[in-house]
C-alpha cells in the first residue's frame, strides 16, 4: 500500500507535483496516468525517497521507504531502465542488489529466468537493447519479492510480446495480493492493464477512481441538428449548457443528456431532426481529464459566446 499526503515538489518556481494525496491499494493494478511532464516520475521518485518532497509525505506499507528493514522486500521499482553501470554484466548488477539484502544467488537466477535475460546475463549491459534493459530493470524490481511494485512506463521499448508479458506480470502480481502501481502516458495501455486509475495533470490529481468509472465520467456529448439553431442556442445558453457550433445548424452539446436537450428544444420551439449521443473514447476521456481546467472552460465558452450574450 502506498499513501501520499499532500505531496509537493517544486523546482525553483516550477511546481512539478502540487499537493497530491492518494492511496494505492493492494490486490489490484493501479495505473498512474498523465501526459509526459505531468509529475508521474517525480511522484514515484518521492515514494522511493530519491527526491525529497518540498511538502507532504508518503508512506509505503505504513512507513517511509527508507525506514524499512528490508526496503527491497517492500518495494520493487523500475524507474529508469538505464540506471545501470553499462560496463557491468546483468548478472553482476543483480548480484550487487541481492548482496545488499542477503538475497540468495538462487533468487538472482530465478528473476533472470522469469524475465528471460538468462542468456545475455553474462554480457555487459552496454550492448543491451531497450527491451532487454527494460527486462533487466524488471528483474531487479522483482528481486526482493516485494509486496509493492512500482513501474514507471514499463512497456517503453518492449515489443508486442513483451508488452503482453508485462501486462500479465502486473495482473499476476496484483492477483497475489501485492500493490501494483504502473505509470503510463497511454490511456489505451492502462485501460487494458489497470483496475484503478489515478490521473495526474500538471502536478495535480485530476481523477482517482476505478477505470470503469473514469470512462463513464468522460463528458457525454451530443450532436444536435436543428432548423432553428439560433433559438436552440439561446435556450441552451439560458440553461447553462455548454455547446459549440460545428457548422450552420449543427451543435455539439456537452454535459447534457439527450432527453434534456430535447426538452429544451421543445420549450424554445426549435425543431430537432438529429440528436446523436457521442460516447467519449478512452483517449478523449483522458485528454479531457488532463487538460487544464481553466483553459478548457475558456475555450468552450468562446464557442458558446454568441449564445450567451
Amino acid at each position: 500500500m502506498i499513501e501520499a499526503f499532500g505531496l509537493t515538489k517544486t523546482y525553483g518556481k516550477r511546481t512539478a507535483v502540487d499537493g497530491v494525496t492518494f492511496t494505492v491499494q493492494p490486490g489490484q493494478v493501479t495505473g498512474f496516468l498523465g501526459p509526459n511532464g505531468a509529475g508521474k516520475t517525480t511522484t514515484m521518485r518521492m515514494i522511493l525517497g530519491l527526491d525529497r518532497p518540498t511538502a507532504g509525505r508518503v508512506l509505503v506499507n505504513g512507513r517511509p521507504y527508507a525506514g524499512h528493514a528490508a526496503p527491497l522486500q517492500e518495494v520493487g521499482a523500475l524507474l529508469d531502465a538505464k540506471s545501470v553501470h553499462p560496463a557491468r554484466s546483468a548478472f553482476k548488477h543483480l548480484s550487487v542488489l541481492a548482496a545488499t539484502h542477503g538475497i540468495p544467488r538462487s533468487r538472482v537466477e530465478e528473476v533472470m529466468a522469469m524475465t528471460g535475460i538468462t542468456e545475455t546475463a553474462r554480457k555487459r549491459v552496454k550492448g543491451f537493447s531497450l527491451g532487454m534493459g527494460q527486462r533487466l530493470g524488471i528483474a531487479a524490481a522483482l528481486l526482493g519479492d516485494p509486496r509493492t511494485v512500482i513501474f514507471d512506463e514499463p512497456v517503453n521499448g518492449l515489443d508486442p510480446e513483451g508488452v503482453q508479458w508485462v501486462r500479465n506480470l502486473a495482473r499476476g502480481l496484483a492477483a497475489e495480493g501485492r500493490t501494483v502501481f504502473l505509470s503510463s502516458h497511454l490511456m489505451s495501455e492502462m485501460a487494458q492493464t489497470a483496475d484503478h486509475l489515478i490521473v495526474i495533470g500538471r502536478g495535480r490529481i485530476v481523477a482517482d477512481a476505478p477505470v470503469a468509472a473514469i470512462l463513464a465520467q468522460g463528458q457525454d456529448k451530443a450532436l444536435v441538428r436543428s432548423d432553428q439553431s439560433a433559438q436552440l442556442q439561446a435556450g441552451l445558453a439560458a440553461a447553462g449548457i455548454l455547446f459549440r457550433e460545428l457548422e450552420a445548424g449543427l451543435l455539439e452539446v456537452s454535459g447534457a443528456e439527450p432527453r434534456r436537450i430535447a426538452w429544451i428544444a421543445r420549450e424554445c420551439g426549435a425543431l430537432v431532426h438529429e440528436l446523436t449521443p457521442v460516447r467519449p473514447t478512452l483517449e478523449e476521456a483522458f485528454m479531457e481529464l488532463t487538460r487544464d481546467d481553466v483553459e478548457y472552460r475558456s475555450a468552450e465558452l468562446a464557442g458558446a459566446g454568441e449564445g450567451t450574450r
Partner: peptide, 15 residues
Amino acid sequence: NDATAVPRRDSGTRL
C-alpha cells in the same frame, strides 16, 4: 492495516 496476503519470504533478508 495492510491487507496484503503476500507471504514473507526469508526473514533473514534485510539490509
